[in-house]
């Protein structure tokens, strides 16, 4: 089964082609790194995958079910979160708690297990001690960490991460990659992650998609040569 299937995707911004000939699949247990030079439409591709943009041609399908036949849960960390301003009246704990809501808790109280998952998520990014801080008072790196903690609190089947390590130091990045690798290898989570740290990240992920400018394509239009398999995934959904 696949969590994401992209077939012959092309996307145009106001008739200007920016992506063409994109096809790949992401299966449970896949940790896929998406790279490309600045302006290579990596975020645009992610937004197409998430349904935030509609492909001009081609198809994107997200599996409605996870590998257990339950509703697929998706955790998305965008590049920037507009509400991270000083005025937004929310504590770190409130924000990370909100990651649990999509696990069937929109209309129900968070139970002991939910709270434990939130604690673990905050501890995994070293932000548990700051749980009562107002989010607007955090530094850029800390904001990034709580966005990640929120996704870990959701414990989704599919992670879609847009440059989540911006503002993180090398040690924190390594720990984060290890945690993601553990999630994909042991728990069969699917991960699609935009990153600039090719060399660092290729030790942890198993597939690499690079958006490149090909000869014969219009100036700002990017494509992919292939979805390179860097290693065999440890996890088998069968």
């Amino acid at each position: 089964m696949h969590y994401i299937k992209v077939a012959e995707l092309a996307f145009h911004y106001e008739k200007q082609p920016v992506l063409t000939n994109i096809s790949f699949e992401l299966n449970p247990g896949d940790f896929v790194m998406l790279t490309g030079e600045n302006g290579a439409a990596k975020t645009t591709l992610l937004r197409n995958v998430l349904g935030l943009l509609k492909p001009t041609t081609g198809q994107v399908s997200l599996s409605p079910k996870n590998r257990f036949g339950e509703k697929l849960t998706l955790g998305y960390v965008p590049q920037q979160v507009a509400s991270f301003n000083v005025g937004f009246p929310s504590t770190v704990l409130e924000l990370v708690n909100s990651g649990r809501y999509q696990r069937g808790k929109w209309f129900r109280k968070l139970n002991k297990d939910d709270k434990e998952q939130v604690r673990l998520a905050l501890e995994s990014v070293g932000m548990w001690d700051m749980r009562y801080k107002k989010i607007g008072e955090l530094s850029g790196g800390q904001k990034q960490r709580i966005s990640i903690a929120r996704v870990f609190a959701t414990d989704p089947d599919l992670f879609v991460l847009d440059e989540p390590t911006t503002g993180m130091d090398t040690k924190s990045r390594e720990e984060f990659y290890k945690l993601l690798k553990h999630n994909s290898e042991v728990h069969g989570k699917g991960i699609l992650m935009v990153s600039h740290d090719h060399e660092e990240l290729r030790n942890y992920c198993n597939k690499h998609i690079e958006l490149i400018r090909q000869e014969g394509l219009p100036w700002r239009c990017f494509s992919m040569d292939s979805c390179k398999e860097l290693s065999k995934p440890h996890f088998s959904s069968l």
Binding site: L50, G51, L52, Y76, S83, S90, L95, S98, Y101
Partner: peptide
Amino acid sequence: FDEETAFTA
């Protein structure tokens, strides 16, 4: 907090 994250949820 963020409409796009909410959409993906």
